[in-house]
Design a protein around this nucleic acid. Structure first.
Lengths: 342, 342
DNA sequence: AGTTAGCACTCGGCACACGAGAGTGCTAAC
DNA sequence: GTTAGCACTCTCGTGTGCCGAGTGCTAACT
């Protein structure tokens, strides 16, 4: 729906006023706080139209107007001006992120913390998905008399490790042989193929070595499994209880929702690129009915990869928060670009 | 203070009634639900005494009595019978714990989850402190063109790793030499000595190799640092919002408190062995004013090590929860005993 | 046709009162 | 030391009345 200029101004003023105070905005206060020079009655007429068309609602007859979800959506799509973080904030963010850029996990943890600190809401970042990653190299190290460590390096540069117990005494000779055999058998194998049946056929080919390999194979399978899962970094969950307009019920819902990593990952990956804001029912999840989710996909080498996201209440400074999410997603992408190294 | 038998019975009935219902208990209901065969008036007299002595309080004149913190403390110390988990629950716990007993971290994460699931409250476990641990062995692996991985095995069997970037191309020859040199220089060194000045003197002794070692040394220093810190595993934080009698203020306090790992670790390690229950102000922390903390130290090879703990509301089934904390701490200790392997 | 002034109207929030019910403390008798 | 009886206190839910903010409508104006 196309709105007239004045109605746009009024809608914008109401959305921003409501965001700032949490109170429905009346025709009189609206005129005081904007430069619009018409009478309150005119504003009321426009407000009545906007209410009829679903952009505003009245909590009760003698209250002002607050924006509906539709109204906020229109504001975001047509009226809002994205606010990038200030120069000082950008400098701070870049400096912090660079200092954590040793591994992707660390960088993403740091990014989540920064975003949460900056906005005061709950931030979530994801590692890049490992689509099509293959096994690049395997290391086997002895770490104890009966324990060893399997390290898996993928073609995407990801490194994951896992300890496993052995029912034989671990010696340098054995780990060396194991490592050689495993690399020979598994180098180049896609992570997605590291299934139980496949491992059994691999194990069958080991002949007399079979005695020493089972635990290592199980560990490698676990690592491959785990490496394919998207890792989530969450920061500022405790802030959920400090968010404006968040009642216990909403807080419970949001916390419960975030307990399921799969659920969160699925939601964050349900848009393909750029910045997206979902408000209330747009999240398509009953537990997020009163929440906002702002998320951005970051890119590595020009390809859409992981996600940077912010969970907040329905009433938030969308312009500022979306600006921050977008900025941090870009920064994370750039740093991960530099990190690619195989 | 020594109480008469009937008063003990009455206090116990009030504490347990209050725990079960959350409502102050009246003289009449008390008689209905216990086998005490005296008149309500007698009970009222005793209740008046118990109130005067600080064990009970009245929210208002026409309400029954609820236990004060002093009353609950007396109940825990003198009246309560610890309830161990049922045979079935024990079997379940043991089976779950065994299946996670590959690394101490995993086991403790699993223990926290079990404790939280069993009680419905928020559980925290800690890894054993690494007092006096020394470097047992160091592995250096190439993981990318410019990245490598340092793995540190301590004399206590702990294994920790960290990736680091190198400003030279990482080859098998270099990692092998590095590993040899680092092991020679650092094996047997206590983690607590891995400080910056010490590392500088070590670096100085490397001669021409100096070019290749700085990043590895920094990584090892970081690992040593990190390995000396107590790791906390927290489970069921989202349950804080579902606990009975927990208002938003208390929930905020508890969540904020748990944000600081040092703070939590300090509190958990402030008793030396066995089972401890702290209620309300006994926690000596304003944010835990309305909370209960039940914690137990587990032992490895007969020596007090880490801690298993439960954060809950003031009103909880102390007998059951303390029983569970105690049981799981024992189970964790036993499994860690078996895991020691150097 | 759009804008404005005026005015009656609606409704939430607050204060207050009132009765019912639960549970007590006190007194006098056992 | 224990008990029965009774008056008392306090919370909670309900109902009433008033205030004020903000509206919608109508009629007049540009």
């Amino acid at each position: 729906m196309e709105l007239g200029e004045r109605k746009k101004k009024i809608l914008r003023a109401i959305v921003e006023g409501y965001i700032a105070t949490g109170e429905p905005v009346g025709s009189k206060t609206l005129l005081q706080e904007t430069g619009i020079s018409v009478s309150p009655a005119t504003v009321r007429n426009d407000m009545a139209d906007l209410t009829r068309d679903g952009f505003l609602y009245q909590p009760h007859t003698s209250a002002g107007r607050a924006p509906t979800q539709t109204g906020i959506r229109y504001y975001i799509d047509n009226l809002m001006e994205l606010k990038a973080p200030s120069q000082r904030a950008c400098d701070y963010i870049n400096q912090k992120l660079s200092s954590c850029a040793d591994t992707p996990e660390n960088l993403l943890r740091c990014a989540a913390e920064l975003l949460s600190d900056y906005t005061g809401f709950c931030a979530v970042t994801t590692t890049p998905p490992s689509d099509g990653a293959r096994i690049h190299r395997i290391h086997i190290l002895g770490t104890g008399r009966h324990t060893a460590m399997a390290v898996l390096v993928t073609t995407t540069g990801m490194v994951r490790s896992k300890l496993f117990r052995c029912n034989f005494v671990v010696t340098a000779e054995i780990t060396e042989v194991l490592q050689k055999v495993l690399n020979k058998a598994l180098s180049g194998v896609p992570l997605s193929e590291m299934s139980k049946p496949f491992m059994q056929t691999v194990a069958a080919s080991f002949g007399e070595l079979l005695l020493f390999t089972p635990q290592a194979l199980v560990a490698l399978m676990d690592i491959a499994q785990q490496a394919q899962e998207i890792q989530l970094c969450t920061a500022g969950q405790q802030r959920i209880l400090f968010m404006p307009d968040v009642d216990v019920h909403t807080a419970r819902g949001l916390l419960s929702f975030q307990q399921s990593s799969e659920q969160v990952a699925k939601l964050l990956f349900s848009h393909k690129n750029g910045l997206r804001t979902l408000i209330g029912t747009e999240c398509r999840h009953p537990e997020l009915l009163r929440c906002t989710l702002i998320s951005a996909r970051y890119e590595i080498q020009g390809v859409t990869a992981g996600s940077v996201a912010l969970f907040g209440p329905m009433r938030m400074d969308y312009a500022q928060c979306a600006g921050a999410v977008g900025y941090i997603a870009k920064a994370v992408g750039n740093l991960l670009d530099e990190m690619v190294d195989i």
